Simulated scan of single mutants.
Amino acid sequence: MREQTLKKAVEVVGIGLHKGVPVKMRLEPLPENSGIHFFRNDVGVNIPLKPESVVDTTMATVIAKDGYRVSTIEHLLSAVHSYGIDNLRIVLDNEEVPIMDGSSIGYCMLLEEAGIEQQNSNKKILRIKKPIEVKDNDKFVRLEPNKECIFDFSIHFPHPAIGTQKYKFHFSTKNYKEEIARARTFGFLKEVQYLRSKGLALGGSLDNAIVLNENGILNQGGLRYKEEFVRHKILDAIGDMSLLGIPLLGAYISYAGSHKLNHLLTKKLLSEDKSYEIMELGDIEQTYDYAYERI
């Protein structure tokens, strides 16, 4: 399989989840071997997608260059990665990606509107060769060798609507759209005042997040999936791991993982070159051609 970009540019206007400011986003094709870049056209700053660009992981993944930030990139990147897009320019006129409805399904629709174009260079992947892990007490994120790309996630919240949830996701574009993309971010009503005092969740509402009080869910329509909370954690993890800049072949396993732990895992992996190898997709065409099914 070859590298991919968009067939045409597409635009959307929305608000940021944490800053609550209006933002216009334009997705533009890039030539092969360009990678993924964020461009703040209000300040003229280009930020390449790589672990070194990450400056904050509090409630969202934030990248920056020369003091100019782009926040809450993980939902968009989750969709971009899951549609097999290697080369892309994401143009923003403010510091946060639009939150849409709190999931990634809106981004999936935007990518389908643009269309996917195959390019000339072979797609490369990063194959995990030996286990690698980052821990924080009982919380952990781990990568293990596997012939498939798998995300296996567990969470526990002492809340009647969540409790213990587990989900094992076998990656493909089709599976992503059906099983993961509609899972929304979530938060607790009792924490909203504190978050807003820290300049976070200023754009949050029942239209773009699952909101929980002490007893249950405030959203009138309820949940989209039985395990929507842990499925959203997988959505986040796919986006965070895309900062590797290359598709991953292996098993991602986590208990109570976070943006912070995911970032530390990408840094640790890239610092230990015996833990992985870079392969051209042509070497294992049958394994990975299935993963990026055409929608």
Rank of each mutant, 00 (worst) to 15 (best):
Asp101Ile: 08
Ser34Glu: 14
Glu272Ser: 12
Ile150Val: 06
Leu76Lys: 05
Gln118Met: 10
Met241Arg: 01
Ile278Gly: 06
Asp273Lys: 13
Glu117Thr: 05
Asn215Pro: 03
Tyr83Phe: 15
Asp236Cys: 15
Asn175Pro: 01
Gly16Lys: 06
Gly16Glu: 03
Thr185Ala: 12
Pro158Tyr: 13
Gly245Glu: 00
Ile90Ala: 04
Ser254Thr: 02
Gly222Ser: 10
Pro158Glu: 14
Thr72Gly: 13
Gln220Leu: 15
Glu178His: 09
Arg196Leu: 04
Leu77Gln: 02
Leu88Ser: 13
Asp66Tyr: 10
Glu285Thr: 09
Asn215His: 15
Glu113Asp: 06
Ser242Val: 02
Lys267Arg: 14
Ser275Cys: 13
Asp101Thr: 08
Glu272Ile: 07
Glu52Gly: 15
Ile116Met: 03
Ile132Ser: 14
Glu32Thr: 09
Glu95His: 15
Gln286Pro: 08
Ser71Arg: 15
Lys260Glu: 08
Asp86Val: 11
Leu111Lys: 01
Glu52Val: 06
Arg182Trp: 00
Leu126Gly: 13
Lys129Asn: 11
Glu293Pro: 01
Tyr292Cys: 00
Pro160Arg: 15
Gly199Pro: 01
Val45Pro: 00
Leu200Thr: 13
His75Arg: 10
Glu112Cys: 01
Glu28Met: 03
Asp273Ile: 05
Ala9Trp: 05
Glu11Cys: 08
Gln193Ser: 12
Ile90Thr: 03
